[in-house]
Amino acid sequence: MSLTTHTTTSGFILPSIHSAPPFFTQQPNPTTQSIATDQWIHLIQAYARHNRLFVLRVEDAEISGNDWDEVLRNERINRKLLPMHLTQILAKMVFSNVATYDPPKQTRSVLLYWRLPDEWAEVLHSWAVSTAQLNTILTFYDITDPPVKSELSGIPVSLLRKAINILVKSGRAQLIGVADGEGVRLFSGGR
């Protein structure tokens, strides 16, 4: 059989390994398994970045009809990633710090770090600079759902909070309680 890449309806190019039937099975050989897992992680991150997906749940492998169908299933060869297998992949992702369990203390849902919190902190700061919103109080909603779409549109609050905390530590942000929840003020301040 010949394995080819496949372009999904969302324009994402699935690698050729995604059309290899054994890719969807947990490999008993640890070396092979770690190669396969690395491929999965790579694929998941690339897909998340392409479609701006922030969350992956074990549930996504259990029930179809979600954002992850194109990756976790391959209808063309009638294979799918089993929930057990996904659980292991998530564990390795958390272990190698490309994801984190969110909420913490469970293992069925992760927040994906296709950008690390540090990187998000920089994105947030340069967004504030370029839109001239330094020194003004922004609510979280102002950031996650700005009138003009930005890199940060749709970012989960838990990830945004991590990014802000990093800015707070370097003296470039201040968390403020506002009427309807929380807000943040960003400064140009050097480190």
């Binding site: 039937p21 490999q27 008993p28 050989n29 070396t31």
Partner: peptide, 12 residues
């Protein structure tokens, strides 16, 4: 599969 890593398993 186990010793040489020349094969991948497919249980589906």
């Amino acid at each position: 599969v186990y010793r040489d890593g020349l094969c991948w398993l497919d249980d589906q």
